[in-house]
């Protein structure tokens, strides 16, 4: 494990490391370098712990055991059970649009900007393996028909942000921001009551342009976006967010939707649910009463 790097900002520390498939950052509103390093290391430990436990790319964790169970029941631990409960709630509330079993659809879709779309038969075969309603989940035992898979990627990163932030908040009373690949949580205002200035990245020009700025004192922020991975088909641009009920991409989803909520997980869930509404994303978020930005 590569140790994190530590850099001094204006009056805060920035720790950086790689986890969960992307760059991770911890901003700490304090002065002691050793304390900052210890806290960043703690965040890194938690990010890696969650990544190793819930990644579908590892051969030895609970997700792998579940996905290779071949129809046999699997007993899961308390933490996994809680995440499955949460995923079940999202499935129910989105009337089936949010579905952690929809990962297998990636077998027939490649979002490389090209024009390839799956043929009907292939899609039908894969769709038979999609659907949380086919899964029997009664805590703590999960029974899934063979061939189906679960993927916690849609909530894992936001959960890791909240979990890491909560762990750090118990160790220090200084304000901090945990940012894993753009999903972040701020525990409180900086010294002097100043908020953290969060820039919403322009997905078309990553790293160069900022579309918007959010001043965050406390809470979670997550962005869902359809801009970077897509397929062009019949002159239309189809984003990579798939509707598990049809197997086809959601059309008309916003390029980037940023939600600010009381936790990162809530923000991420709402932004995903909004994107799943396609063109109705803005209205969905307006109805929910949450603060958001749509681009």
């Amino acid at each position: 494990m590569t140790p994190p790097t530590l850099e001094r900002g204006e009056d805060f520390w920035v720790g950086r490391f790689a986890a969960m498939g992307g760059p991770c950052e911890v901003l700490l509103d304090l002065d002691d370098r050793d304390e900052a390093l210890a806290l960043v290391a703690c965040a890194q430990d938690e990010a890696l712990r969650i990544e190793h436990k819930f990644s579908r790319y590892r051969a030895d964790n609970i997700i792998d055991r579940i996905n290779r169970a071949g129809g046999e029941p699997v007993e899961v631990d308390a933490e996994t059970a809680r995440l499955l409960d949460y995923a079940a709630l999202c499935h129910e509330m989105s009337a089936g649009r949010f579905d952690i079993t929809s990962g297998v659809l990636r077998r027939v879709w490649t979002f490389d900007g090209g024009a390839r779309v799956p043929d009907e038969a292939a899609l039908r075969d894969v769709l038979a393996l999609v659907g949380w309603e086919r899964v029997t989940w009664r805590t703590p035992v999960l029974t899934m028909p063979p061939g189906m898979e679960i993927d916690l990627g849609g909530i894992g990163k936001e959960y890791a942000v909240d979990s890491a932030a909560a762990l750090l908040a118990r160790r220090t009373s200084s304000a901090l921001v945990v940012n894993f690949g753009g999903d972040l949580y701020a525990t409180g205002p900086r010294r002097g009551g100043r908020p953290w200035a969060i820039g919403v990245d322009d997905p078309e020009r990553t790293g160069q342009g900022v579309l918007d700025r959010v001043d965050l004192t406390r809470g979670g922020l997550a962005t869902s976006g359809d801009a970077r991975r897509f397929v062009t088909w019949q002159g239309r641009r189809l984003g990579h967010i798939l509707d598990p009920r049809t197997g086809w991409p959601i059309e008309g989803a916003p390029r980037a939707v940023t939600v600010i909520a009381s936790t990162c997980l809530e923000a991420g869930t709402l932004s995903t649910l909004a994107s799943l509404q396609g063109p109705g994303a803005a209205e969905f978020l307006r109805d929910s009463g949450v603060e958001f930005r749509i681009h």
Partner: peptide, 9 residues
């Protein structure tokens, strides 16, 4: 979501 402070030691 307001249980954050109570978690502190």
């Amino acid at each position: 979501w307001d249980r954050d402070l109570m978690a502190r030691e």
